[in-house]
Amino acid sequence: MGILGPSKEATLLLRDADVITAVLRQALADASPEERGGLERAVAIAESIAAATGAEVRARWVRSQLAAVGFTGDVASVAAVKALRQAEPGLSLLAAVQLQKEAVAHPE
């Protein structure tokens, strides 16, 4: 099963937010009082990212790919699928549409 379910194209979703969160927590434990505020915020952000579901991660990826090619329109549009495939030329039409649906279902 790939990122989008069973298919001929397998994609692996790798996440290391839990490792980053652990490193930030250790840094916070060792931090001076001046550093604590910023590190507390960084830990909260990392925990939020680590808690995201696979669909939320993929939706965030879609939006980042669309932004990378300068797309500013409606994510639910045909133009968004075209822009996504422009950003990732190896992406099949089916995969692009499925990713688009997840992005629409998981707005920022």
Rank of each mutant, 00 (worst) to 15 (best):
69 V>E: 02
90 G>H: 12
51 A>Q: 08
58 R>G: 08
86 Q>I: 08
72 T>E: 11
101 K>D: 07
62 V>W: 03
5 G>T: 08
2 G>R: 15
21 T>R: 08
84 L>F: 06
77 S>G: 05
50 A>T: 08
15 R>K: 15
71 F>S: 05
26 Q>D: 15
85 R>H: 04
71 F>A: 00
80 A>S: 04
54 G>L: 09
30 D>V: 00
22 A>L: 11
86 Q>T: 11
85 R>K: 03
81 V>G: 03
91 L>Y: 03
75 V>F: 01
78 V>M: 14
57 V>D: 07
40 E>H: 12
104 V>H: 00
48 S>K: 15
108 E>T: 06
64 S>C: 12
19 V>P: 05
37 G>R: 13
24 L>H: 02
68 A>H: 09
76 A>C: 08
71 F>R: 00
47 E>F: 03
73 G>R: 04
52 A>S: 15
30 D>E: 13
2 G>E: 14
72 T>N: 11
107 P>W: 09
16 D>P: 13
72 T>Q: 05
81 V>S: 04
29 A>F: 02
79 A>N: 13
28 L>I: 08
76 A>V: 04
76 A>T: 00
90 G>D: 12
80 A>K: 00
80 A>Q: 02
108 E>Q: 07
30 D>P: 08
14 L>W: 13
94 L>H: 14
36 R>A: 08
85 R>Y: 03
98 Q>K: 14
66 L>K: 07
7 S>C: 13
39 L>Q: 05
100 Q>V: 01
63 R>K: 01
41 R>S: 10
63 R>N: 04
105 A>R: 07
46 A>E: 02
86 Q>F: 05
78 V>G: 12
17 A>W: 05
108 E>K: 02
13 L>E: 00
49 I>Q: 10
15 R>Q: 14
23 V>G: 13
8 K>N: 14
79 A>S: 14
4 L>I: 14
41 R>V: 10
52 A>M: 15
45 I>W: 09
94 L>C: 14
14 L>T: 12
50 A>N: 09
63 R>A: 07
97 V>P: 04
9 E>A: 14
70 G>S: 02
55 A>C: 12
42 A>C: 10
